[in-house]
Amino acid sequence: MFQAADAGNEDEYWTHFPHQADMGVRGVGPTREAAFEQAALAMTAVIADPARVAPDTAVAICCEAPDDELLLVDWLNALILEMAARHMLFSRFEVSLDGPRLSATAWGEPIDLDRHQPAVEVKGATYTELKVGRTASGGWQAQCVVDV
């Protein structure tokens, strides 16, 4: 729940939105890829301040789903799996989409409790408030609620 850092690009940003028990993550960008990258950043920010996470180690991620919305959930769930299994946090993402397939690189570092001060563990991305689509200004938006 940290504020989105000024990325120097008002077309590309992330936000959180409230849910009674959990938290909504939303990424906005000029392309679907950018919106997916920003949504991932929003998810990191549920846990800790992304500005404190050094993008030192790269992890490759691939997933596939029949539509954009299921693909967003798969992408976030793949990151949750890597965070949990590797005990890492991620702060930089590069996504490429090819039809139903996503391939990406996430950069981050091992969790440092003192420096990162993680507040909660994100347990899963959900289909609640799940939307991937165009914004009024012609960009892309990707959002869902994550279970914490």
């Binding site: 959930v73 769930n77 949990a84 347990k123 899963g124 289909y127």
Partner: peptide, 17 residues
Amino acid sequence: RGLGHQIGSEFLKQMVI
């Protein structure tokens, strides 16, 4: 813990499809 969440996420997707 993580195991339950992973099972829940994976089967939710399979059941939707």
